[in-house]
Design a protein around this nucleic acid. Sequence first.
DNA 1: TACCAACTGTGTCAAATGACACACTAACAA
DNA 2: TTGTTAGTGTGTCATTTGACACAGTTGGTA
Lengths: 191, 191
Amino acid sequence: MEALRTFLNDSKELSAKEMSFLVDHFEQRQIKRGTVLFEQGAIVNSIFFVAKGVLHHFNYNELGERKTIDLHDGPCFCTDLESFSESKRSEDGCIALTNCTVYVLTKEKYDSLVNTNVKWSNFAKRIIERTLIKILDQLKAISHKSIEERYLDLVKTKPDIIQNASIGTIASYLGTSRETLHRIRKKHLFS
Amino acid sequence: MEALRTFLNDSKELSAKEMSFLVDHFEQRQIKRGTVLFEQGAIVNSIFFVAKGVLHHFNYNELGERKTIDLHDGPCFCTDLESFSESKRSEDGCIALTNCTVYVLTKEKYDSLVNTNVKWSNFAKRIIERTLIKILDQLKAISHKSIEERYLDLVKTKPDIIQNASIGTIASYLGTSRETLHRIRKKHLFS
DNA sequence: TACCAACTGTGTCAAATGACACACTAACAA
DNA sequence: TTGTTAGTGTGTCATTTGACACAGTTGGTA
């Protein structure tokens, strides 16, 4: 619960009362490795906050190969935004790579929250803004850093991902092949 | 003006009166090729809506080389969100590659709008959501499509960018070298 | 224990890429 | 007109990459 509160109160603007009101919209759930959070063809009607654990968010290319879209390493939010906000069928899937503690915010609760008043709407807006800023950073890195740099960044900043995702999954996340990532790993074995 | 109205009323939910109220927050400006919209070291205190024209959004890597972050092809919004929303100094720059019609929304007007009531806050939230969905699509493409595929997509969907940005700028946008993009171009000369 | 499926490690080779070098062209200003 | 600057076209070559093939390893299960 603490991870959720800390993440949400990033700007330290919420009172204890407001925080209680906010977290009451979430439902805690302990999930096991292998649990499906959402899947291809279904409408994603929740936002998941991962307090602890690693999620594999993926889709399939035109050849039917599974491609990693993101590896979510708590604490962070996870959903298929397009499916959630536009009630479309998702093209993606999401599976827990470890046992996780997640807090689920259903669309119903979310809509209720953001329509309460301008404060909560702006609050949700700020969360989306933070997500967008994070994704824009990822986009810059992906365009202008080498696979090797990005792998080393990952080792440094997200060791849980390195430990829990297979080399193939990580390679796909980095946009390269299993073999190339293996060569990079080998090169850095003793550092 | 029409481009702005069409873009904003994507979901067709605004009345004529609401639309007037909304667009009154923007100021129209005609800018010339080469005009700087924002630059490194300054705080970006406006959101720009590009009705027509192409913008070059870039930053510099640790070697001082200019790297293309995005090529904005109207109609679309453009800003440095991190600088705008957190009043930080920007690390990026943005220059018009063509003469453009832009509508400027200052931070002051933006803040005033989103604090009016829950409806306008949710409206702004929806715009940011749409932007995030677009960027997530770009991220998927960049990870799992080849440079060649992405170049051909660009030719098909954004011909104004192809015509107005230099080959080096486009290569940087695609995350490759000028020479490699040249080879791809040559290969597709007659198709 | 024995088996199986998923994953990892590794070698080979053709193809793609980046870096470099340099000639050529277009646009613009003096 | 001439010079200057930015950008383009192109060849060479060392390096990196992806694809393929296959052996080894691991964890779970019958």
